[in-house]
């Protein structure tokens, strides 16, 4: 298959990938393909940015630019802050720069400068990533709550829900997400360091999540959606909680 086609296929699979890490890993593989194809003409010659950037731009100009812009923005927003100085960050930055260059080709050639907005958005990304670093935790994103199905960390789904959502409403959301047939038998539970609590229908999951996130020392916790009698007959029933003061 011609290299260009292979590269475009990679971009397409990047667009389909969901996790930002997966997307970045596909981006790196694509860059490798580009280097490999450059090496065909001149084997063994190491290529730096002088050589790579123009080729990357050539490739990007032939890709689906709208999708690429979306993907780059997505990765920039969501990539793991720990990777900030890494290879993924470098090639993501380079791709971003190349796309901006293509987008504003005429303007850049005249002014020799990226627009203030572009420079600012890079800055904001970096700031956000570094600021969030300390508390980068999947479950700490506001307005989202991560719920596992049946067991902690199994089939986890991150559900969007407002801070004032009741446990009963979140249960309904879960029933739909996990496609359970008898939602009346299922409830939302929170597991805190091995102890299990059932959320009362009128409890506020976000309230409880916030309380757990702020608690010192840090507690490991998981929200789990599962049937009421899941623990088996031998286990004592879970405490049903409404306020986060149960701990």
């Amino acid at each position: 298959m011609p290299v260009m086609e292979k590269i475009l296929q990679k971009f397409a699979s990047m667009h389909k990938a969901y996790s930002p890490e997966k997307k970045i890993s596909i981006l790196l593989k694509t860059c490798k393909l580009i280097y490999d194809s450059m090496a065909l003409g001149n084997p063994g010659k190491p290529y730096g940015a002088d050589d790579f950037l123009p080729v990357l731009m050539y490739v990007l100009a032939r890709s689906n630019l709208t999708e690429m812009l979306l993907n780059v923005e997505y990765m920039m927003e969501l990539m793991d802050p720990a990777l900030q100085l890494g290879e993924g960050s470098y090639y993501l930055t380079t791709t971003y720069g190349a796309l901006e260059h293509i987008k504003n080709y005429d303007k850049i050639t005249v002014t020799r400068q990226l627009s203030v907005e572009v420079q600012d958005s890079i800055h904001r990304w970096e700031r956000r990533r570094t600021l969030n670093k300390a508390r980068a935790s999947r479950s700490s994103v506001q307005d989202f709550i991560c719920v596992s199905y049946l067991e902690p960390e199994q089939q986890s789904r991150t559900l969007a829900s407002r801070a004032d959502t009741l446990a009963s409403a979140l249960c309904a959301q879960c029933a739909e997400k996990f496609e359970v047939l008898q939602p009346q038998d299922y409830r939302l539970f929170v597991l805190v360091e091995g102890r299990c609590f059932q959320l009362a229908d009128e409890a506020l999951p976000h309230h409880i999540k916030g309380y757990l996130l702020r608690s010192e020392p840090k507690r490991d916790f998981h929200f789990v959606y599962r049937p009421l009698d899941c623990g088996g007959s031998g286990d004592p029933p879970c405490l049903v909680v409404r306020e986060p003061n149960f701990l």
Binding site: G48, A49, D50, F52, L53, P54, L85, G86, Y90, T93, Y96, G97, E100, H101, I108, T109, T111, R112, Q113, L114, V118, Q119, I122, H123, E126
Partner: peptide, 21 residues
Amino acid sequence: AIWDTAGQERFHALGPIYYRD
């Protein structure tokens, strides 16, 4: 971590996204 940049004059504008931070 060593970040190389493209030195061609026409890419001058991309400098800030590399040297920032």
